[in-house]
Design a protein around this nucleic acid. Structure first.
Ligand SMILES: [Mn+2]
Ligand SMILES: [Mn+2]
Ligand SMILES: [Zn+2]
Ligand SMILES: [Zn+2]
Lengths: 143, 143
DNA sequence: CTGCTAGATAGTAATGATTCCTAAAAAAGA
DNA sequence: TCTTTTTTAGGAATCATTACTATCTAGCAG
């Protein structure tokens, strides 16, 4: 999945964000991968083109992009945070062993009805289905 | 929800775990609450009866109980870990603002069919539905 | 009941991801 | 080009969790 610089600049502008090379590179990397990388993964990736970038910039940028709703964070236990540049509604499948995250696009999962019998006053906004299992690689390694 | 010491001792024995006052107190606290406490919450709670207990013991014990499948960890973003002593299959509802976690017992949620069209070889073992929203208290505070 | 031993506890030090602080640099509009 | 507001980079700080290790104790064997 490829994204043009113009598109990126436009999205940043729409959110009132300045376009910098570092920010653009981080966002582009995140939109163009399906691997749900960590901040450090992104730091290493972007470092190839911008050797002087700091980890701090990566963290700061991820925070900014998240607030602007251009990316989202994926919860996988309490290990380091994982990020997702794919905003279309979808769910995830996570390997117990290697923590790899795979997108689950099944449309049926977007039609789950909200539960009833909850504490009064609680208002649900959205939900996430998190499947767990073992990826092919980890399964063959065990055998 | 109350649990007797005999029941606790039996469960520990079944898993080959020694029964110590600290371990018993931590497990009892976790089974008898629905608040999904953090390690520190439990440390503070158990400290009332065992003032000399160390945080380390709480962390170690939670690890042991988790490996023995007597408790489970609940994922809520990447804040500190939250624990659950309720092993019956259920899901959760989390407040965006105060991070409180409420149990969702809706049986329909336990009958979701596994998605198809996944990477070959991936084997799903289980899943979790995580609802997000705003609790009553946080909603009235905003208004 | 007594002693033995694996496992548990407590205290302290270390780790590591993330956040905080700040001066210098750069984007974007005037 | 000038000005203002962000953004960046680097270093220090934070804080939950782990690691290390010297006692201590539960549970069992004798
Ligand atoms: Mn995804
Ligand atoms: Mn629960
Ligand atoms: Zn795997
Ligand atoms: Zn709340």
């Amino acid at each position: 999945m490829n994204i043009s610089l113009e598109t990126i600049r436009q999205r940043f502008k729409d959110q009132g964000l300045k376009s910098t090379p570092q920010r653009t590179a981080i966002y582009k990397a995140l939109v163009e991968t399906t691997s749900h990388p960590t901040a450090e993964d992104l730091y290493r990736h972007v470092s190839q083109d911008y050797p002087m970038i700091s980890q701090n910039t990566v963290y700061y940028t991820l925070g900014v992009l998240q607030q602007a709703r251009l990316i989202r964070e994926v919860n996988v236990g309490h290990e380091r945070a994982r990020y997702d540049g794919n905003l279309s509604p979808h769910h995830h499948l996570i390997c117990h062993d290697c923590q790899s995250i795979v997108d689950v696009m099944d449309k049926k999962l977007n039609e789950i009805s909200f539960p009833t019998g909850l504490p009064t006053g609680f208002e649900i906004t959205d939900y996430q289905v998190e499947f767990r299992g073992y990826c092919k690689r980890c399964r063959t390694q065990k055998a």
